[in-house]
Design a protein around this nucleic acid. Sequence first.
RNA 1: GUGGCCUUGGUGUAGUAGUAACACUGCAGUUUGUGGCACUGCCAUCACGGGUGCAAAUCCCGUAGGCCACCCCA
Length: 429
Amino acid sequence: MKSSKKSKGKKFAFQSPKGTRDLLPNDFLYFDKVEKAVKKTSSLMGFSRIETPMFEDVKLFERGTGSSTDVVKKQMFLIKGKGGENFALRPEMTPGVLRAYIESGLSHVMSPAKFFYWSPLFRYEQPQHGRYRQFYQLGFEILGADDPAFDAQIISASYGVMEELKIKNIIIKINSIGCRTCRANYVKKLKEYYKNKLNKVCRDCNKRYYDNPLRLLDCKEEKCQPIKTQAPQTLDYLCSSCKTHFKQVLEYLDEMKIPYIIEPTLVRGLDYYSRTVFEIFTEGLDFALGGGGRYDYLSETLGGPRMPAVGAACGVERIIEALKTQEISSVPKTRSKVFLIYMGDQAKKKSFEILKSLFDAGIAVNEAFSKDSLKSQLRMADKEGSQMALILGQQEVFEDVIIIRDMESGAQENVPIKKLVDEIKRRLK
RNA sequence: GUGGCCUUGGUGUAGUAGUAACACUGCAGUUUGUGGCACUGCCAUCACGGGUGCAAAUCCCGUAGGCCACCCCA
């Protein structure tokens, strides 16, 4: 007792940084399933994969995502390069994807271009349910097109992934916040409306009034609600082309029978959105699984060419949370059906040769090299649910045979090692 | 950035001041070359640091992390 206490080492002092998590083998049962769904949907709909650096010039986000947004103002991990460069770990993908598209010259080769991504992002936030400092997003971007068909296709792609995963009761909340012209017009009206009510709304709304008036519509403060509901709505102030655009998006969604509700107060938090904005929800979870919208001016804002575009991003951890909440099962672990057991050093050595030949023949084999007793190796084989065990001892090595044991019936048979591959293949089907 | 709750072995829990209990899992074994059952043994300085007490998992303070509500977002 005392000696065991004395022999204890120091407590392991490291833990994963706040808001980050390790993806352990069991997590990948879900992770891989989602990844498979996004790849399938992408290939069916013609999106090709893109990946960009995990860090970029901080200005890309300041100018692109918008310096008035929380994401840029207080949620970026900043890195100082040794040469004095200012980088930021990417808090979102869109500006990087657009940058890559222009920089690579791809914009001259394929336009419009349809991309999908599956990438980790970083935001310095207070972690919470469904919210991490490092998290994965899957997303779609269509660059160089302003046709409303693409808005619908972006939504359809996101919806398709959810559908593929069998997530229940998916609902799209959608709105249009107009183009530069009609939005400016609307914001003016909105400010006029709020002007003489500023003493009746919360402190945050007073700030929003000056910083980002559209966000007034986002307020959840109780005392602001009555004022909010009476406020002018973006949809009533759309210019005729924005109105037509939005109407067509909805019509296309109707054609695909994608369920949506128009949410007049939906505005979203990133500066670059224009016209269509949307978020994706499912039953049982209060956070959005995804969101996106059109960003027709982002390219110009970054000093690039005029390039209308639309995109969406979904939180992978959130989708997985939905799968778990809705008890949608993960992909079952694929276990190898064959388990190799050795007895003695000579057999252990020989087993490498056998393992190699089985791998070469495309047969998955499990073993337990750290357990030397036959008993514990068999126990292991049993636990793994193996269909057959291959038992190799001194005697067998000497005779150049191996025992195949059927784990269910317990029947055993000696097989010449030369014929092992064929014999296993025969039994596996 | 603000406020509230929480933190006991790999997992889930018990234990409100006298030096950690239970279940599952894991590991080792129950005589030598055969699993699934059963049995035995082992695996926690009670998140970390400090304080008060003769005595602290148990009270107090600090830190870290988790959760929740804001904020915002995926």
